[in-house]
Write a protein that binds this DNA or RNA. Structure first.
Lengths: 193, 193
DNA sequence: GTCTATAATATGATAGAC
DNA sequence: GTCTATCATATTATAGAC
């Protein structure tokens, strides 16, 4: 007979994700992770026998699922392309808390661990995001190659805006990205309606 | 009577910078820093009594000096705006090694250490870069506000391209940024001559 | 200025009680 | 499933010889 869970699976992973996205993999000590989740280190090891690495992997998997549900799926419709991008922008805004939170994909990327345990998941996430954005552009009549270039640009702007928002201590860059997103993908200034 | 230096000041800081830019502040252990510089830990403490924090601070200061010499100065002339941007792009290419190296400003930014010892230097570097790029746009006839927006976008693209290059294991995004830089700032496609 | 040796602490991880 | 207690190791940092 086991004790009742002190924290739900979702909440646990969300809190771990927050720590990893704030301080990166190396910076996320077990004491920090324990404090953030309210669990003791041994309890975390019971749930994640693989330790920190497994925690980061599951957090990345969760992030991949979030990406699928809140970004990729909305991008595929229904609604007009502009409407879908508005949903995506709104979801990104909530996810990154207006630019105050860093991106896990950035914080878990390390040139040292190029072939490490996270590289594959990160590559997959970026590729899926770029493809989905490019597909939307194609849908509005843009040719495949420029569509892909626009999508890559948009992802660069997303990541760069988060870096710049963090580095300058202002959420301005991220908000600028959000409002520029539709034009970046569709190539037109969205209507004021 | 002291022993002769085994490593020049410049080389020392460059090697430290490399480690910090690769693994971030938390990931840069003294053993890693010692191995990268060829010095023992005690020797590093002799040179940097403030430990890792001082190392990172001096590395950031060095980066600031590099920015001044290789980016800000070229941006102020001489030469046509397009020529100056070509120099800047070339220097960025060399500095980031074609997109293979991460940016220190990104790797030393931490939401946890928002008012930490590095935040001020990072803010200053970003602000100076944006201002210099905006000034160049203004020089070509762009109004101040859109000029600043262009400059911010360019810096976002720089940072985002580095994140994406690292995350995807391809230098493509960074190269795309380099070739897009002139148009981002000047608003015109550069001549093919 | 650099080194070896060492101290104090923090870290990732495990054992075993409840 | 969670905890306290503990281990082995790595970490930041210092002392003192050369």
């Amino acid at each position: 007979m086991s004790r009742p869970r002190l924290i739900t699976e979702d909440d646990l992973l969300a809190r771990l994700a927050r720590v990893f996205s704030e301080v990166g993999f190396e910076g996320a000590s077990l004491s920090l992770l324990a404090k953030a989740t309210g669990l003791q280190k041994a309890s975390l090891y019971h749930r994640f026998p693989g330790g920190k690495t497994q925690m980061a992997e599951e957090v990345l998997a969760t992030t991949g699922a979030w990406l699928e549900a809140h970004i990729l799926n909305p991008l595929r419709g229904p609604g007009t392309p502009a409407e879908r991008l508005a949903i995506v922008a709104s979801n990104l805004d909530a996810f990154y808390q207006g630019g105050a939170r860093a991106c896990l994909l950035n914080m878990l990327s390390s040139p040292r661990i190029e072939d490490g345990p996270f590289a594959s998941a990160i590559r997959t996430a970026f590729a899926a995001l770029i493809t989905a954005l490019a597909d939307l552009a194609v849908e509005t009549g843009v040719s495949p190659e420029p569509a892909r270039a626009r999508a890559e640009r948009a992802v660069m702007l997303l990541q760069g805006s988060l870096v710049l928002s963090r580095g300058t201590g202002s959420t301005g860059p991220f908000r600028a990205f959000l409002s520029a997103l539709p034009e970046e993908i569709l190539g037109t200034t969205p209507s004021m309606a």
